[in-house]
């Protein structure tokens, strides 16, 4: 019990949703700070300095995306977005504004807790990320640039390594197409989604047991990709 309990800021206008989030996070041992408006949320983020923020996108006063921008001006704390909007656009906008992940309403608490755990782990490890990735029977060492499947070496291209490293940096969290394209291929290739499609297929063919039903290199349709490793 020596470790301080992580604090979570919840910016959400619906009291019923705040209530069940408070209960669920309380049971899991988190401290909870609640804000019912976007303005209040931006202030509470500054005064309470939580370890992670959960921000609803549809707030009554200011847009959730604005809240994310304000927090990002001074803090790298992980931000998870609650989005009721079905449109992919608002999710992507929130991610581009600095959110680390999203959960679409209605969601099961299990899904949200998993995202929160992944984001908090990332916050501890960042910025170096993880260098050893285990995919079932395959182990990739990002630092040494080696990949072994059942002790046998598999060749990954430099770009494949870079792509994996980018995903590993945000392990367990979604990384947008745009982000991957700009970082791996450069800003001029921001719209060349087909590069990603081709390289993700190659990576899956090399690393996944069943490339069509990937368990690690997951597709977030219309948004990006997510690297998930065995716990």
């Amino acid at each position: 019990m020596a470790e301080p309990r992580p604090a979570i800021l919840i910016v959400e206008d619906e009291p019923e949703i705040r209530r069940f989030l408070r209960t669920a996070f309380g049971v899991e041992g988190y401290r909870v700070v609640e804000s019912a408006t976007g303005r209040r949320g931006s202030i509470d983020a500054g005064t309470h300095k939580p370890d992670l923020a959960i921000v609803d996108l549809a707030l009554p006063d200011v847009d959730g995306i604005e809240v994310i921008r304000r927090i990002r001006e001074w803090s790298p704390m992980p931000i998870i977005v609650l989005s009721a909007r079905v449109q992919e656009r608002s999710k992507i906008e929130a991610l581009d504004a600095g959110a680390n992940d999203y959960v679409t309403k209605p969601f099961g608490i299990g899904e949200l807790l998993a995202r929160v755990r992944a984001a908090l782990r990332h916050a501890v490890r960042s910025p170096s990320g993880t260098s050893i990735l285990r995919f079932g029977n395959t182990v990739v060492d990002l630092e040494k640039r080696t990949a072994l499947r059942d002790e046998e070496e598999i060749r990954l291209t430099p770009i494949e390594f870079r792509l994996l490293a980018m995903l590993a940096k945000q392990l367990g969290m979604v990384v947008t197409h745009r982000h991957l394209l700009t970082v791996v291929w450069g800003p001029t290739h921001e719209k060349d989604t087909h590069y990603l499609r081709i390289y993700m297929k190659q990576l899956r063919d090399k690393l996944e047991i069943d490339p069509v039903r990937p368990r690690h290199l997951l597709t977030e349709t219309g948004v990006g990709y997510r690297l998930v490793l065995d716990e």
Binding site: T193, R197, M200, K201, V212, R213, L218, T219, G222
Partner: peptide, 17 residues
């Protein structure tokens, strides 16, 4: 319709997930 290059095998995988 927001068209972009997509892979059918990826779409199938995402749907099954």
């Amino acid at each position: 319709v927001d068209r972009d290059w997509a892979s059918l095998s990826e779409i199938v995988g995402a749907v099954l997930a």
